[in-house]
């Protein structure tokens, strides 16, 4: 997994509450048994114009399609971003599109875990501060880039204001070092094996055996 320490980029605001993972990647865009090929389907319901069920071109009103936000890698969103379905495809789609940092007052909890497992930084800030960040992008979001520093836990606006954020140490370490979670856990394999041995005594009824 790609480590993330500092990141600077174009930010795009999508300031509505409860943006769910069906909106981030609709079911019909999850076409293959793969983590790839999902970027095109990102926000498909909002991002494209349709005739019937056919896409007929980009929806110019949608922020991601506006030149001001071209190449955006930081998403500013409303509370409870990524609620709903556990589909990790939402995170794979955001990452494939080019997002590296998401900023919102809160996140869906499965979605947030999925972000951390895929090197996408979820930053939690109060709604007013997310609005402040969004305001700081104008008049030219391409020039007025945002800087995110995970080591220092701060976000800096283009006009030099800094906003501190907190993040749990487990998530921070995983992202900073791009750690493979399975590998890290298997460092505790002795503890797992010891637990299992004791557990098989204590809760023998809970074990299943191959058919």
């Amino acid at each position: 997994m790609k480590p993330l320490r500092q990141h600077q980029g174009v930010a795009v605001p999508l300031l509505r509450i409860n943006i769910d993972t069906d909106a981030i990647i609709p079911s019909r865009e999850m076409k293959r048994v793969s983590k790839k090929g999902l970027g095109q389907g990102l926000f498909a319901g909002w991002r494209y114009r349709y005739e019937g069920d056919e896409k007929v071109g980009p929806e110019p009103e949608f922020a991601l399609n506006q030149p001001a936000y071209a190449g955006a890698s930081i998403l500013l969103a409303g509370a409870n971003f990524g609620c709903g379905s556990s589909r990790e495809h939402a995170v794979w789609a955001l990452a494939e599109y080019g997002f590296r940092v998401l900023v919102a007052p809160s996140f869906g909890s499965i979605f947030r875990n999925n972000c951390i497992r895929n090197g996408l930084l979820p930053v939690t800030l109060p709604a007013e501060q997310v609005e402040t960040l969004a305001d700081s992008l104008q008049p030219d979001p391409q020039q007025r880039r945002i800087k995110v520093d995970l080591e220092a836990r701060v976000i800096e606006t283009a006009d030099g204001r800094t906003l501190e954020f907190s993040i749990d140490e487990a998530a921070r370490k995983t992202l900073l070092d791009g750690l493979d979670a399975i590998e890290v856990t298997l460092r505790h394999d002795d503890a797992i094996q010891a637990f299992k041995a004791a557990d098989r005594q204590r809760r023998a009824w809970a074990s299943l055996w191959p058919e």
């Binding site: 556990s86 499965i110 875990n113 999925n114 895929n118 979670a181 399975i182």
Partner: peptide, 10 residues
Amino acid sequence: WGIGSSECEH
């Protein structure tokens, strides 16, 4: 509880 695919691998 529900998890993502990566956590499921884990």
